[in-house]
């Protein structure tokens, strides 16, 4: 028997690789690399198309302004609307997540979570139509009240817009849109809070709120921050809701309830792009590049916080 095997196959440490293996592994790797190429392409093509606007003299740009003068009010509007959304949505999202994770009856909690997720499923154009058709007229009363009693705060100085198409309403719509994102993250971290810590707190006589304050919230703090940052990233890039809701005049103002508002970068692109031509297109793409960089920075910061947390948390 042994004599028939003249040349025994040399045993090596490497496993046998078939052709199929190499093809499959190669294509999987290729797909991964393709994603990197696409992302590099996004940056490269935007730069290429934005370049003419960056080097053009101010006299040829729309409005004969410097590019920075053109983009600054838009950037301001973008940040302001996103900030309003963040300020409104974050506390609400934390409360909603707490309700689902610690207050609602266990049996219906998952269903309630699904209801909140439904908010994320609504297309942005629908939010835009809802914002201008329902929320804007409905909030005129609120804004008049704010102006009457809190008008000494520059935010509510007025005069109040009669249509309700104001920065405050745009921020409210954005808040509704980012609420499910922040809630989802907050719910995850609240559910991951160590069960033993919670039970120990309750056993020591803490009320439910004291238990949450001492055991759940400190554990979830960095998760909450990153969730809020993800929501901020979404609010910064949201286009249609702002484009439809906001009545724009291009001024830089903190006045949230008047009809003169700065537009946001994304909304401005959506409104101007279909009619733009020549250098106007390049200017819009340059503003898109600014938006890309801002959201990139916000998201990378959020991911950094998430990753730092996952390394140090004892949950996994």
């Amino acid at each position: 028997m042994t004599t028939t095997e003249v040349t025994p196959t040399p045993r090596t440490a490497r496993p046998v690789t078939q052709l199929g293996d190499r093809v499959f592994a190669g294509s999987a790797k290729g797909a991964g690399i393709l994603i990197l190429v696409v992302l590099a392409g996004v940056a490269a093509f935007l730069l290429t198309e934005a370049f003419p606007a960056l080097v053009a003299p101010a006299s040829e740009l729309p409005g004969e302004h410097n590019l920075a003068v053109y983009i600054w009010p838009l950037l301001f509007g973008t940040l302001l609307s996103a900030l309003i959304a963040l300020v409104i949505a974050t506390p609400l999202a934390i409360c909603v997540a707490l309700f689902i994770s610690h207050y609602a009856p266990r049996r219906i909690a998952q269903g309630l979570g699904y209801l909140v997720d439904l908010l994320a499923a609504v297309p942005s154009i629908v939010y835009g139509l809802w914002g201008v058709g329902v929320l804007a007229p409905a909030s005129v009363g609120l804004m008049t009240w704010l102006n009457d009693y809190l008008g000494w705060i520059p935010l509510f100085a007025g005069p109040v817009s009669a249509t309700g198409r104001t920065m405050l309403v745009a921020g409210l719509v954005l808040a509704v849109m980012i609420l499910p994102i922040i809630t989802a993250v907050a719910r995850e971290v609240f559910l991951q809070a160590p069960r033993l810590h919670e039970e120990a707190a309750l056993a020591l006589g803490a009320t439910r709120w004291e238990m949450i304050k001492m055991a759940v919230l400190p554990f979830g703090r960095s998760g909450l921050i990153s969730g809020a940052m993800l929501g901020l990233g979404r609010a910064l890039g949201e286009t249609m809701a702002v484009a439809i809701v906001l009545s724009v005049s291009g001024v830089v103002t903190f006045n949230l309830v008047s009809s003169g508002n700065p537009s946001s970068i994304a909304a401005n692109i959506a409104l101007q792009f279909p009619e733009a031509s020549g250098l106007g297109v390049n200017v819009l793409i340059a503003s898109g590049l600014v938006l890309f960089l801002v959201t990139l920075a916000v998201n990378m910061l959020a991911r950094y916080i998430v990753n730092r947390r996952s390394e140090f948390s004892g949950a996994n």
Binding site: V38, V42, N299, R303
Partner: peptide, 10 residues
Amino acid sequence: DVMTGIPSIV
């Protein structure tokens, strides 16, 4: 992860 955050208009 970064790509998840690309604004749709971009």
